[in-house]
Design a protein around this nucleic acid. Sequence first.
DNA 1: GGTCCGGTTTGATCTGGGTCAAGGCTCAGG
DNA 2: CCTGAGCCTTGACCCAGATCAAACCGGACC
Lengths: 246, 246
Amino acid sequence: MNAPVLSHSRCGDCPIRHRAVCARCNADELEELDAIKYYRTYEAGQPIIWSGDVMNFVGSVVSGIASLTQTMEDGRTQMVGLLLPSDFVGRPGREGAAYDVAATTDVVMCCFRKKPFEELMERTPHIAHRLLEMTLDELDAAREWMLVLGRKTAREKIASLLSIIARRDASLTPGGATNRMVFDLPLTREAMADYLGLTLETVSRQISALKRDGIIELEGKRHVTVPDMRRLMEEAGDDSDGGFLG
Amino acid sequence: MNAPVLSHSRCGDCPIRHRAVCARCNADELEELDAIKYYRTYEAGQPIIWSGDVMNFVGSVVSGIASLTQTMEDGRTQMVGLLLPSDFVGRPGREGAAYDVAATTDVVMCCFRKKPFEELMERTPHIAHRLLEMTLDELDAAREWMLVLGRKTAREKIASLLSIIARRDASLTPGGATNRMVFDLPLTREAMADYLGLTLETVSRQISALKRDGIIELEGKRHVTVPDMRRLMEEAGDDSDGGFLG
DNA sequence: GGTCCGGTTTGATCTGGGTCAAGGCTCAGG
DNA sequence: CCTGAGCCTTGACCCAGATCAAACCGGACC
């Protein structure tokens, strides 16, 4: 949000304009990043990494949505993170992946080979700094989600999820945040359930209920209109608007 | 765990020997840390920081236990982190605190004034590096907890919490992890409930149930003996033992 | 000793969300 | 056009855990 945004010349074919690691790099550093970078695409539903696998890259989501999930032996699944465009994947200094990463929609990733990236990071304090910042953001998000999972009702959970998606959508859209929001749900009911610690039936019922109560409008199963974000956020039980509006 | 541990000369009156930011510092850096450092004690139950307050320090817990909590306007609270000795508090580069921090038991903190600490960090890559590592650990813990909150039953939640406390206890005790563990619960039933997203009645009932089933033994309300950690961890539904035993 | 008080246990009852089951929509492929 | 596969919705029923209420326990203080 407040990170300086740069139309960087080298890393510039990378359409990431927000939260990028390279946002403050100089020409030399960008060239170096460019040399160890490659793109990779995944189809919706495909796994990207399995928990425990050795990861030989780090990178950012360029487009599409990926999810981090944890699964118990008996199959219970909890999504522990959503990766939206510009989000970072991988943890410098760690061998294996800690979670399953999968493409929820078609995904394009911009990857950096891990070894040279770590070396560059070693020499370039502001990249390490950026990474720390991003990790702190993720930690905040994870902890906010703990409140959702631990204490909110099903209806509040759905409203929270819709708020978050609307918010992220707004930050990527030129128009930005307004009181009326329109967006597409990038998740199936099942994926929403896994994120919210609910069953897909409950998700479906609560979405129907929010629709019946005029909090949201639905066109098809995925296209959502929120006539009044304030009401949605009340439903979410958030005390603040999360900086959504001015 | 695998971070090099140093009996550092300057920061050495600080009894933290694990995860400390200063573990790799040289003499000059330690002197500098020493100059900006002070101790502070809090009684059990006292607030340390309120969410939103401006924080003018960062630091580590030296002894005792502190908790991070989030509260909704209607009073529902969720604990989002437990701070045990050697855990770090505060986020370099951030103005305000994101959560309420409170002393659960009597707490001693080793604090560094924030401004000079950030400056030192700017000049000292390995401190930033250490901080990133610690933040990644916290992120992992938070995400592991998301699985607990979202998908585990009350009994599994209790078993998970007991496992974590036993594990942390073991890593601080010379003897280390054995199959039989004895420790004191540092939390009230209510605090456990807030951590687990349950009510205190349910916590009490499940503890009684684990006791009845011989998974744990209780002496008084707080002193716990786990005759067989393996059984406890089965109850927790963990597929791995979290590296608890060799 | 008694009494107060915070923390805890236990019981009785209620209910939100899980579970099981039956259709419904929509789009791709034949 | 029909058919099948995914995804989604809706209904009926059930149960784990919440809620409400009462009592218990152990230590501090008079």
